[in-house]
Simulated scan of single mutants.
Amino acid sequence: MSRVLVLDVDGTLVDTNYHHALAWFRAFRRFDVTVPVWRIHRAIGMGGDQLVPTVAGQDVEDRLGDSVRDVWKKEVDAILDEVCPIEGARRLLEAARDAGYTVVLASSGKPDHVDKYLDLLDARELANDWTSSGDVSETKPEPNLIEVALRKAGDDEAVVVGDSVWDCQAAERIGLPSVAVRTGGFGERELRDNGASRVYENLDDLRADLPNLPTGKPRRS
């Protein structure tokens, strides 16, 4: 049985976290809701269904949630061409394939955004499969995305790789080990405190340690 690399995309392979934070800030402001950008950044990695109530409160979610998410999508679309791959992303994908991993790109991004990132990374030939928001009902830190990724992989001896505390929490909720890179702007201690067994400064450091990554089987509900 091959090992599965459940690999986050936003903030891990493509440099989008601060684009998303700014887009959310602008979307909230469209409805006269001001949320500090630093607070939004702390929630990047969650899906929009989780982010709005987390940073703005349940009242804003109840009144404006879907409208804010619609505007956020337009704001992100306007700056999507500014997104770049994170240094070492394609080298990591190539090395994971060569090491025998089954690679599933686990993104809760909109399907058209995921298509953009796949093209940007030239990753369709390197990943065994990928996910988008269309595949899940609940986003991180809920583990639905990981569960979908494992079903797509066809195996369940896996490790989760991400850049945010939400990736680590999602892995922990399903009983899988996680490792993290600091490419999303989160600190080493907080990533470890939220479940990451190892934290890497960059993708090349992670790539060098691929043979040693911990893997495990998920808990079954």
Rank of each mutant, 00 (worst) to 15 (best):
G184M: 06
G162W: 00
L64K: 04
E190C: 06
K73G: 13
L118A: 08
T215L: 07
E125F: 08
V160L: 06
D119P: 14
N212I: 00
E138M: 11
G11I: 03
R91G: 02
A123W: 10
A196P: 13
E201L: 12
F28Y: 09
H113T: 13
K74Y: 08
L5T: 09
E190W: 03
A149R: 02
T102E: 01
W130G: 04
A27E: 04
T102A: 01
G88C: 06
A27C: 10
R97G: 10
D115T: 15
L5A: 05
D62Q: 08
E94I: 13
V33C: 01
V60E: 06
L121P: 09
K110Q: 15
F186E: 05
R69V: 14
G162M: 13
D59S: 15
D155I: 07
P36D: 04
D129H: 04
A96E: 01
V14W: 04
L126F: 00
T54D: 11
D205W: 05
V136K: 00
F28V: 03
L203H: 12
R29I: 00
G187D: 14
K73H: 13
D10A: 13
V104T: 09
G187L: 01
R220V: 10
S164G: 03
A89E: 06
V14T: 03
G11A: 03
W166G: 04
R97N: 09
V35H: 07
A23K: 15
D98Y: 11
V52P: 02
A171L: 01
D115W: 15
L210F: 11
A180T: 08
G100S: 08
V199T: 05
D81N: 10
R90C: 11
L93S: 04
G187A: 13
Q58I: 14
P111E: 05
A95N: 07
E190D: 12
G65T: 05
G65H: 03
